[in-house]
Amino acid sequence: MNKLTSGAKVYLAIVFLILYAPIFYLIFYSFNSGGTMNNFESFTWEHYQAVFEDSRLLVILINTVIIALLSGLIATIIGTLGAIGIVSIRNKKMRNTLLSFNNVLIVSPDVVIGASFLILFTMIGVKLGFTSVLVSHIAFSIPIVVLMVLPKLLEMNTNLIDAAQDLGASKRDVLTRVILPYIKPGIFAGFFMAITYSLDDFAVTFFVTGNGFSTLSVEIYSMARAGITLTVNAISGIVFIATVLIVIGYYFVTNRSKVGNTGVQE
């Protein structure tokens, strides 16, 4: 009854093929000495070399990673504290209001977020560049961290906190030794999601980045508008490898913490 028919298998195969073909197409031609994406002449590493020799591109790559890690870290701290705060609110109306505010940036189209942040930074007088991009990335990552941490907090048994307090734990102890270890998987997931949001963002960054500062997405956009350069293909090869490594790493981290978690509960 639950077996897949061969038709279904073919269907799935086609979907997977379509999903992956463009990515492998890009990577394949990154080794093309020909310089176009349709005529494979001979194998070469020259486009990868070009990436690593282009100091401007390297700076952009480093900027992108710094922005992602830094915004992910700060968003995780604010978001986790926020989630703990939300859960502690007894007033149901108040709690739901905060949660709806939380979801505004998640559902808003990124063009609207970008445009409104542009107005905001201009009004406050923040110079467009590293700061504005970093602050925007923190801002749109916070709600996703909250959404990742919240379920863990809600499923936590409040008796654990009462027990800790009865045993003489201070409020700080309760936070650092009971609550935070329990919600750790949620915090990890939130941090990870924040980083991927930041790495993947184009629209918001495009609005709030000034002339001097650029992230990978914005740079690829301007390169792609100019036409096909196989340097972009080489970048996609690097990005693909990095993504797969991150996914595998994340998979192991979450699986380990899951095992640890059930171990505690049982």
Binding site: P22, M37, T196, L199, I228, V232
Partner: peptide, 25 residues
């Protein structure tokens, strides 16, 4: 299924410039 969604959006779009091009596959 999820992995491709983590590849930068711009790169995926850029791929189609080649795929749909006049001399593309």
């Amino acid at each position: 299924i999820i992995i491709p969604s983590w590849i930068n959006l711009l790169l995926k779009t850029y791929a189609f410039i080649g795929i749909f091009g006049l001399y593309g596959p």
